[in-house]
Simulated assay, not measured.
Amino acid sequence: MAETMLFSEADKPHILVVDDDERIRNLISRYLRENGFVVATAKDAADAETVMTLALFDALIVDVMMPGKTGYEMTRDLRATSQIPILLLTALGEIDNRIEGLESGADDYLSKPFEPKELLLRLQSILRRHRPIDRTVDKIKIGKWMYRINDDLVEGEDGEEVRLTAVESRLLESLARQAGKILSRDELARLCGVDGNDRTVDVQITRLRKKIEEDSRYPRYIQTIRGQGYMLKQ
């Protein structure tokens, strides 16, 4: 069962810690919270995938040696669809292991045992190199529409309001918060908590287009990028 928490502090970086060792999870979580982060945890890659359907994260801290999918495998899978910052943790300190971690797509690599302060400094360094997710924004302008995120609706310049389903709203939020960036169907499925089947995402996109596009056959805002996914053009 995923160990999640409510994200009530919108201006703080959101971190997901993935480690099968409960003691390590608790140690990292406590230290990061004491230093201004909002933290959720998962005990393995499968658990992490569930947590990542529930919230957006600014970075991941992932243990390499976990039951099931390893940290290397999890990182490679994520890199196929996402550039979220990833810091790998491992008890293996050999050069070859470090190289494998970086080649898998990790942003940094830290060997156990480690000093919490070093973990904090490495995480802060990674975050400085990436643009954080802005959760303080609850309204986003999309063409003639004002998307009111917390209300699950878009409002036209003439006052017209169009209600969105929960999935449609999560889909639009995922695209809008990363406007101009191509998001794959798999990534959108994870962010929106829907079945990863391509057809499922396509159906939701079609429904959303019918609500916000003047002509859904020739979309102006939600662009299809052939062979890659979708992108919001503002």
Results as ranks from 00 to 15, higher is better:
L60F: 14
M65L: 11
M66C: 06
R79T: 03
M74E: 03
D77L: 06
M65H: 09
Y72H: 05
L78P: 00
P67F: 13
I61E: 08
A59T: 10
T75G: 06
V51G: 12
A59K: 05
D63Q: 05
T53Q: 15
T75L: 03
L56H: 14
V51S: 12
M52I: 11
L56I: 11
V51T: 15
A59I: 11
L56N: 11
T70R: 01
P67G: 12
I61F: 09
R79G: 03
G71N: 05
T53A: 14
L56R: 13
T70V: 07
A59Q: 06
M65P: 04
T70I: 07
G71M: 03
R79F: 01
M66D: 05
P67C: 15
D63I: 07
R76G: 05
M66R: 04
G71K: 00
A55E: 15
M74A: 11
M52A: 12
T70S: 15
V64Q: 02
Y72C: 00
M65I: 09
L56D: 11
T53P: 06
V51W: 08
E73D: 08
D77S: 09
D58K: 09
E73Y: 00
Y72E: 03
M52N: 11
Y72A: 02
R79I: 04
R79P: 02
L60H: 10
L54F: 13
L78F: 09
M66V: 06
T75M: 04
L78I: 13
M66T: 04
L60M: 15
M74P: 03
M65W: 05
D77F: 01
I61D: 09
T70N: 02
L56A: 14
M74D: 02
L56M: 15
P67Y: 11
V64R: 00
M66L: 08
D77A: 10
F57R: 09
A55D: 14
L78C: 06
G68T: 12
D77N: 06
T70H: 02
G68R: 08
D63H: 04
G68A: 09
D77G: 05
T75R: 03
E73V: 04
A55L: 13
V62I: 13
G71W: 01
D77H: 01
K69I: 09
M74H: 06
V51Y: 08
L78N: 05
D77T: 05
T70M: 04
K69D: 01
I61P: 06
D58S: 12
T75A: 08
L54W: 10
R79Q: 02
D63S: 07
M65Q: 12
F57M: 13
G71P: 01
V51I: 14
P67D: 12
Y72L: 07
L54P: 09
M66F: 04
K69G: 02
G68W: 05
A80I: 10
R79C: 01
L56V: 13
T53V: 10
A55F: 12
G68M: 08
R79H: 02
G71H: 01
D63W: 02
M52L: 14
L60C: 13
D58E: 12
L54I: 13
M66E: 05
L54N: 14
L54R: 15
R76V: 06
G71L: 02
F57K: 10
D63G: 07
